[in-house]
């Protein structure tokens, strides 16, 4: 029962991971750029939501407005930073996205300071009990919203004309150009969508765990998620997000206490620290060693 309780929390957090990871996969598929700034967008989305509510807006309107602002910001960064760097080496582009992350963190530090902030309740406070398992509205709402958005986004990607152009760009940039798709605009759309997903994910995470600069680290946790899912698979990112969320919750609640009990009995070590924070990375290395293309990824062949 305890494990199930943990799994509920894990699924809620994991679905938010999936939301944030989707954005990274989307940009990577369409332009080959790895967006290290995704955590920065999540953090900024949460801070803007907080800022708007502290001005007096109702929290739901603040959230919608913040997501719109994030979309604009995503498009803007793509146009201002990524477009001029089309021919730059891969590492330089990675570094530029890290520069965006550093700048976002500095902006938030300047305006909102380094302390943990109580995030306004996005959803009513309370919980329902289902055969012994408690689920707070917060967790249910975070899960439902993420699930609906993930599903909606995948549907958009597969069944609309823009989705078709996105897939075309991702599949073969030259062919996309040849049939008259404006590839740069498609990449801008990908960045817009990605920033909006991240903004929502950030606000949801802040409503679960509180808000501070540390929220930007979520962008780095998203990397095990997308690699496990296979860099180029959108459904893979969703599945891997859920798996990692559950794994972290179970590690925190069951595995860490068990290991510490064992160590206390047999050695003089008392604590294994924040094991749940490294477990995704340990798993990541293991999976990469066994299956370098991720669980759902397709193997890329290399040409000379």
């Amino acid at each position: 029962m305890f494990v199930l309780q943990l799994a509920v929390a894990g699924i809620a957090i994991g679905s938010v991971y999936a939301l944030i990871a989707l954005g990274i996969v989307l940009i990577y598929k369409c332009s080959g750029v790895v967006n290290f700034a995704q955590g920065g967008y999540a953090m900024l989305g949460a801070f803007i939501t907080y800022g708007l509510t502290s001005v007096g807006l109702p929290s739901v309107i603040a959230l919608v407005l913040a997501i719109a602002v994030m979309g604009g910001l995503g498009a803007l960064t793509q146009i201002l930073v990524l477009r001029p760097m089309l021919k730059a080496p891969v590492v330089a582009v990675m570094m530029a996205t890290l520069g965006i992350l550093i700048t976002f963190r500095a902006v938030c530090l300047l305006i909102w300071g380094p302390d943990q902030i109580g995030f306004p309740a996005l959803f009513p406070i309370g919980a329902i009990e289902l055969s012994g398992i408690f689920m707070t509205y917060n967790y249910i709402a975070a899960f439902l919203l993420s699930a609906i958005l993930c599903a909606g986004f995948l549907a958009f990607y597969h069944y609309t004309p823009i989705g078709l152009m996105q897939r075309c760009t991702a599949d073969n940039t030259r062919a996309a150009l040849a049939v008259g798709i404006h590839v740069s605009n498609q990449v801008t759309i990908a960045w817009t969508a990605s920033a909006m997903l991240a903004g929502l994910g950030g606000a949801l995470l802040a409503s679960l765990n509180g808000l501070s600069l540390g929220l930007s680290n979520i962008g780095l946790v998203a990397f095990p998620v997308i690699v496990l899912g296979g860099m180029t698979s959108l459904p893979g990112a969703v599945v891997a997000g859920l798996v990692l969320g559950i794994l972290q919750a179970v590690t925190d609640g069951v595995l860490t206490p068990a290991i510490e009990r064992f160590l206390r009995e047999h050695t003089d070590i008392y604590s294994v620290g924040t094991l749940q924070q490294v477990i995704p990375y340990a798993l990541l290395v293991l999976v990469l060693l066994v299956r370098p293309q991720g669980i759902f990824g397709t193997k890329e062949s290399e040409r000379v």
Partner: peptide, 15 residues
């Protein structure tokens, strides 16, 4: 914060 911002922006502009 200003130090970080200058660093981040300069890196981006520079790249």
């Amino acid at each position: 914060a200003l130090r970080e911002m200058v660093f981040g922006l300069l890196i981006i502009l520079f790249l």
